[in-house]
Write a protein that binds this DNA or RNA. Structure first.
Length: 630
DNA sequence: GTAGGGTTAG
């Protein structure tokens, strides 16, 4: 990288604690120093039950008044994510003289456990009591400001740092850079960075990832290059940071270069680095590269599984998504909310209602997906994925039940219902949903109108559809896009109003897209209008010369009016252009899986039985006077 | 005795 040789850096392994620490016995006697060292080891290994044993040992042996022991206990409980116990120790009535160590430990605990508000409240409390914060307090408190969106507090703290002479501490400086960048206060972040006398890798990383997180990728990469020029060796954190950038900007070549670098450095043994690689390859649509990183990973965590699932879904490999999900369950890995939200769209796309239902059932049995046990954000997302699955699989009843039973809804929830009703021909219900949405003071967006207009199209509600098109900008503030016009063209075509559709194509503010022209072409075939069909066909073939459906539609138009010479002409052009008609394909989901059928395909083990069924259906149709069209 | 940086879904 950068043409320079980078020395291999060997990272120290996490400190190995000797065996006797882990054999702490409540019947033996230990001094306070041993207890603290043991607590640290349990904090490191997040061994809560052993930590609790030391806690009771300290209480029994009257060591509890020792401030260092209290600090270590708070830290141990914090690392084990038990802030309730940590707070109990902190507030224990016998030690009234809370010192800066205890405050630092409890504040750090709250901030690390995502409870920054609590952490910040305790900082205020210590200030109120006149306890002077030190260089250990500030990194946590500054981070808390970032989490709690308190940008004015950062400025105040920054001022205090000068008074206390802590402005040159690199730990504090890193926290300041992080928080300033989070608030996009670029000038302040740069000032801190430039004025620090010692700049370590963590500080540089804070700049790189800080810029990346606010979407300033160019800046982030510029800092990254400068970091190399200053002779710093990127750490695994740096690698993860730049990988996430190449993932967002879909830069495969540089992503691969980082892959080479992390392999050379031995960083690829890190689960987090591998997860970032999987994500990068996935975003660049390289499923096989992502999969090969995933397959050789020694320790896969929930992020690894969720990422590889997302990769398959992102690349449109819905079967792949379900396959990996199955593999995940087979490996005994518990899916989480993210997993389920990623897998449900695969069921939706495959119209695999049974799979979707199974996942829904799994969620209910395992207690996740409950409104009260998730953040509103996660909950709405998951519920929307479920509703979308039911709606697109044609089960509007269950979609509606979910919709009616949830308190939290966003604009997507309403759109899913409008689109779902519209898709299945329930025009009145779609329109009703839309008016309820407006009554609930939810502002419709462009997707709402795509759903609404396609609902009008499928239900033949031409008058209503045209009204929505003309009102959507003036009344709802959503300016019509090409997609909206395409819906209306389709609506007019389906209603047989070919000339109105063609007029709209000519006066609308966009050039019609292939979908619009194809709607017109299909309608011409139905209504035997060869003149308009020729115009539409010429346009659509010009826009999409390789799309077989366009030629087939055109030849069908000629076929319907008996112009067989032109039919063979179109077929000839298809051959010349080397356009091949893809065989028709349909599938149906039954109890044990999805059954796929291709035109003329007799590979299904129950072919004879199926065709017998089809023949009797055809007989019933013919009895009712149905004549198949060409 | 206490402190800083990273990854996933939509």
């Amino acid at each position: 990288m950068n043409g320079r040789t980078i020395l291999r850096v060997v990272f120290p392994k996490p400190q190995q604690h000797s065996h006797w620490f882990l054999c702490f016995s409540t019947s033996a006697s230990y001094n306070i120093g041993t207890c603290i060292a043991t607590l640290q080891s349990y904090a490191h290994n997040t061994n809560l039950s052993k930590g609790k044993e030391i806690h009771s040992y300290l209480l029994k042996n009257a060591f509890f008044a020792s401030p260092p022991a209290i600090t270590s206990l708070i830290s141990m409980y914090s690392k084990c994510t038990h802030m309730d116990y940590a707070l109990k120790v902190f507030n224990f009535p016998t030690h009234l003289d809370k010192n800066v160590f205890a405050y630092n430990a409890i504040i750090a605990g709250f901030v690390a456990n995502g409870l920054s508000q609590h952490g910040f409240a305790l900082y205020r409390q210590m200030r109120h009591l006149g306890i002077l914060p030190d260089k250990f307090t500030f990194p946590c408190v500054i981070r808390a400001c970032g989490d709690a969106v308190e940008n004015f507090e950062v400025k105040k703290i920054h001022g205090l740092l000068f008074k206390l002479g802590l402005e040159f501490d690199v730990f504090v400086g890193s926290a300041l850079v992080n928080t300033y960048l989070k608030f996009a206060m670029l000038v302040e972040a740069h000032e801190v960075f430039e004025e620090l006398p010692v700049r370590d890798v963590v500080l540089w990383n804070s700049m790189v990832t800080g810029y990346a997180q606010i979407g300033k990728f160019e800046e982030a990469l510029r800092v990254f290059r400068r970091m190399g020029e200053n002779g710093l060796v990127p750490s695994r954190y740096t690698a993860t940071g730049v990988l996430s950038i190449f993932s967002v900007i879909r830069d495969f070549d540089n992503g691969c270069a980082v892959h080479g670098f992390v392999t050379k450095m031995g960083y690829d043994s890190s689960t987090v680095v591998s997860n970032a690689l999987i994500d990068m390859y996935g975003k660049c649509k390289c499923v096989s590269d992502a999969l090969s990183v995933f397959d050789i990973m020694n320790e896969k965590d929930i992020f690894s599984w969720n990422s590889i699932i997302a990769v398959h879904e992102h690349c449109g490999d819905h079967y792949g998504t379900l396959r990996i999900f199955d593999r995940m369950l087979g490996n005994g890995v518990q899916p989480d909310l993210v997993t389920v939200t990623a897998v449900l769209p695969a069921c939706t796309h495959l119209a695999a209602l049974m799979h979707g239902r199974e996942i829904h059932g799994y969620m209910v049995v395992n207690g996740f997906g409950k409104e009260e046990s998730n953040s509103d954000f996660d909950y709405v997302l998951l519920n929307n994925a479920l509703m979308d699955m039911y709606a697109k699989c044609g089960n509007m009843r269950d979609a509606r039940m979910l919709f009616d039973n949830t308190r939290e809804k966003d604009v997507a929830s309403w759109n899913i219902m409008i689109t779902g009703y519209g898709m299945h021909g329930y025009g009145d219900e779609a329109l009703d949903m839309f008016s309820r949405m407006c009554k609930a003071h939810m502002t419709p967006n462009e997707i709402s109108f795509v759903g609404l207009l396609s609902a009008c199209s499928h239900a033949g509600m031409v008058k209503e559809g045209l009204e929505f098109l003309s009102e959507m900008e003036s009344k709802y503030g959503v300016s019509p896009s090409i997609e909206h016009y395409t819906c209306v063209i389709d609506m007019l075509c389906r209603a047989g109003q070919l000339m109105e559709a063609y007029d709209l194509v000519q006066i609308m503010p966009f050039k019609a897209d292939p979908v619009g022209w194809r709607s017109l072409l299909a309608a011409c075939r139905l209504h035997k209008d060869t003149d308009l069909a020729e115009i539409a066909a010429r346009k659509v073939i010009e826009l999409e010369p390789g799309h077989c459906g366009n030629y087939v539609l055109m030849s069908n138009v000629y076929g319907v009016v008996g112009r067989y010479e032109e039919v063979s002409e179109v077929r000839h052009t298809m051959k010349q252009q080397n356009v091949k008609k893809r065989p028709g394909c349909s599938w149906i989901e039954l109890m044990n899986g999805v059954h796929v059928f291709i035109t003329g395909d007799r590979n299904h083990p129950q072919t004879d039985f199926i065709y017998a069924g089809l023949n009797s259906l055809t007989a019933v149709l013919q009895e009712d006077g149905y004549v198949p069209s060409i």
